[in-house]
Write a protein that binds this DNA or RNA. Structure first.
Lengths: 128, 128
DNA sequence: CTAACTGCAAAAGCTTTGCTTTTCA
DNA sequence: TGAAAAGCAAAGCTTTTGCAGTTAG
């Protein structure tokens, strides 16, 4: 557990903004100005591997990272790319439903919502 | 509707393999050997815009394209990246559920399953 | 002490873009 | 014939990697 890894983990635990790797890099740089982007990427992967953080692979968008490791879904603004937790529990039995109908062995699922965040919605409403 | 665009569309309609842009390029090149990758990308976007095909933005993986434009979910092999349709109807009312609990305006959702395809499952089973 | 890790820079992989020439309606 | 599109190559953006030097345990 190096200084760099510890600071990355702390930073992510303190944030609820679901930052991208580059945003994590910017945040961490305030505390460790000489850290490199490569180190950030490497540690984000290692921490995700260890289960200390969660790597959120979004469709058609760059990866985000989450200090919250419990399973949950997300909702993303299609205008500004903001990401929030979806207010909804996980669908525990959804995988069993298709298990019988496919020859795949199901290992998991991902659900994500798209929408307009409150801010972008206001702007859109004002304009039209 | 140029020759290139028509061939790209035909190719996609004939395939059920959910090819990536590069795979589409390779397939189309058999018929139009001088087509460029840029043209393929441009036309895939245009065709998706027109609703003639569907762009499948998968989490943490490159985009795929689908000649089938009706809404459906997918299941992806985490080992070989093969993509198939999930044998399951769409969850029509899932968006209403969270609509009341968030200030987002919900526009859509994406659900994808991860698993091992039959081939990769066989290999894994043989080995262990 | 040494295995693991860092910083740096280069490279890789997918996608987009600028520009000139060609094509389609 | 003029607007849209193609071909080609370069650039863009995120992520990974090679390597030499550094650090944690």
């Amino acid at each position: 557990m190096t200084r760099q890894r510890r600071v990355i983990l702390e930073t992510l635990r303190e944030s609820n903004a679901h930052p991208s790797a580059d945003e994590v890099y910017e945040l961490v740089r305030r505390k460790l100005s000489r850290i490199s982007l490569g180190t950030v990427y490497r540690n984000l992967d290692i921490l995700a591997e260890l289960g200390e953080i969660q790597k959120i692979a979004l469709s058609g968008s760059l990866n985000r990272f989450d200090g919250e490791t419990r399973k949950h879904y997300h909702i993303r603004c299609i205008n500004c790319d903001r990401l929030d937790d979806a207010p909804m529990g996980t669908l525990e039995d959804i995988e069993e439903g298709i298990g019988g109908a496919t020859r795949y062995k199901i290992i998991g699922h991902r659900l994500e919502f798209m929408g307009l965040c409150p801010e972008c919605l206001d702007i859109a409403t004002d304009r039209w």
